[in-house]
C-alpha cells in the first residue's frame, strides 16, 4: 500500500506571554456539562481566574480550557491553615459533536467559566476569542 502524501500544515499557535512560573501546579476544575439539541454548555469552577487570564482552544474536536490565577500577596502573614493551594487550571475534553466555531462564547462570571458551544458543521483548528466583560 502506497503511503498517502499529505501536506503538512504548520499550525502556529499563538500562546499568551510565557507564564510567569512553570513550576506552578495545574488543577483540573470541576465542571458541569449540559447538552441541549442546539448547544453544549460547559460550566467550570475556576476561582481566581479573570476574564483576561482565560484561554479556550478548540482544535478539531478537542476542547482545552486554561486559566491562570493571580495569587494574593501575603508576605506579612503566616499561613496558619490551608485547604487549597494556588495554581492554574487546565482541562481537556473531546467533543462528540461538531461545533459552530463562529458562535462560541466564553465568559468568566464570579470565577465560573460559562462556555457556550453551538452545534454545527465540520471542525477546523481555530482559536476562540474571549469576550471581555
Amino acid at each position: 500500500m502506497t503511503e498517502e502524501t499529505r501536506a503538512i500544515q504548520v499550525q502556529q499557535e499563538q500562546r499568551p506571554a510565557v507564564r510567569e512560573s512553570r513550576s506552578r501546579r495545574v488543577f483540573a476544575p470541576a465542571v458541569d456539562i449540559v447538552e441541549t439539541n442546539d448547544e453544549i454548555l460547559v460550566l467550570a469552577d475556576m476561582p481566581g481566574v479573570r476574564q483576561e487570564d482565560l484561554e479556550v482552544v478548540l482544535e478539531k474536536n478537542v476542547l482545552t480550557i486554561r486559566g491562570t490565577v493571580q495569587m494574593p500577596h501575603m508576605q506579612e502573614y503566616d499561613l496558619e491553615y490551608a485547604e487549597y493551594e494556588g495554581g492554574d487550571y487546565e482541562r481537556i475534553f473531546t467533543l462528540a459533536d461538531d461545533i459552530d466555531r463562529d458562535h462560541i462564547e466564553a465568559e468568566m462570571k464570579h470565577g465560573v467559566l460559562h462556555l457556550r458551544l453551538p452545534k454545527a458543521g465540520p471542525a477546523r483548528i481555530r482559536r476562540i476569542p474571549v469576550k471581555t466583560g
Binding site: L43, D45, M46, P47, G48, P72, M74, E76, Y77, D78, L79, E80, Y81, A82, E83, Y84, K109, H110, G111, V112
Partner: peptide, 21 residues
C-alpha cells in the same frame, strides 16, 4: 468551600474559593 487562613499578630485573613455565588 475550601478555606485558607493567614495570620499575623494583628489580624487574620481567611480566603475561600466560592465561585459563582
Amino acid at each position: 468551600p475550601p478555606l485558607n487562613i493567614w495570620t499575623n499578630n494583628d489580624q487574620a485573613v481567611v480566603t475561600a474559593e466560592l465561585p459563582g455565588i
